[in-house]
């Protein structure tokens, strides 16, 4: 591998990495609370409400993210009601915003699945005990259910974060130039396919290592056994 190629490719990929990071950070920051909310809704007693959240998760987990991103970016723009609403159009009309929306909606469904299993695995006795102590529904969730469920869900959620970083590459299909988009352009420009692939995968593997180790640290910090 020539050094020239590396010095030529890396600056482009660094610019792309900024976009990938931006999409991933929004994916975690908005997708995590959204997923937790969905999980709570899915475990609620109201049949109608929990059913509709179930259907949402099944649809987003059962279709490829490429289709979701195309429906959002190309499909929704067709409706004049959406084009005339400035707030929605700000989200859907811009390719970067549409990509972030798609990532958030998609990861929300998977996160909900992770947290739902965590919430269902909580020991009944603890919840009965908190009810016997007279804690309100919100206090039970805030002080009993949530702290335990988070610790239960964290290992599975850390692999979901790695998936978010990978899925953000689909933004390149709607003209957002993130790492994969730049890599494709560099591949067809320099013809050094293998070299560009190796440099690009180093970027992704580095991001994975950073996100997985930081989540591992959080996991250790939260664990009861020091």
């Amino acid at each position: 591998m020539e050094l020239d190629l590396v010095t030529y490719a890396v600056p482009f990929l660094l610019v792309g990495a900024k976009t990938t990071l931006l999409i991933s950070v929004f994916g975690v920051a908005l997708g995590l609370p959204f997923g937790i909310a969905l999980a709570v809704i899915r475990t609620s007693k109201n049949r109608m409400v929990s059913r509709s959240a179930d259907i949402y998760c099944a649809v987003f987990r059962g279709t490829p993210m490429l289709v979701q991103i195309f429906v959002i970016y190309y499909g929704l723009g067709q409706l004049s009601a959406i084009r005339s609403n400035p707030v929605i159009w700000w989200i859907v009309g811009d390719s970067l915003h549409a990509a972030i929306l798609a990532v958030v909606l998609n990861t929300g469904a998977y996160t909900a699945e992770i947290f739902r299993t965590a919430l269902l695995s909580l020991p009944r006795g603890l919840i009965e005990a908190s009810q016997a102590c007279g804690l309100s529904v919100w206090a039970t969730f805030r002080h009993v259910k949530f702290p335990l469920a988070v610790r239960q869900a964290l290992p599975a959620y850390s692999s979901e974060v790695a998936i978010i970083v990978k899925e953000s590459s689909l933004a390149s299909t709607i003209t957002v130039l993130e790492i994969t988009g730049h890599a494709k352009r560099l591949m067809s420009e320099t013809f050094a396919i293998m070299d560009i692939f190796i440099i690009t995968s180093a970027f992704y593997l580095m991001m994975n290592v950073v996100s997985l180790t930081s989540l591992k640290l959080i996991e250790r910090k939260l664990s009861f056994a020091k």
Binding site: S169, S172, T180, K184, I193, M194, F197, T200, Y204
Partner: peptide
């Protein structure tokens, strides 16, 4: 497993 599927496809196709 660490890189996006899209990148693997680009490698195999263009390569």
């Amino acid at each position: 497993r660490g890189v996006p599927g899209l990148l693997v496809i680009y490698l195999l196709f263009f390569g």
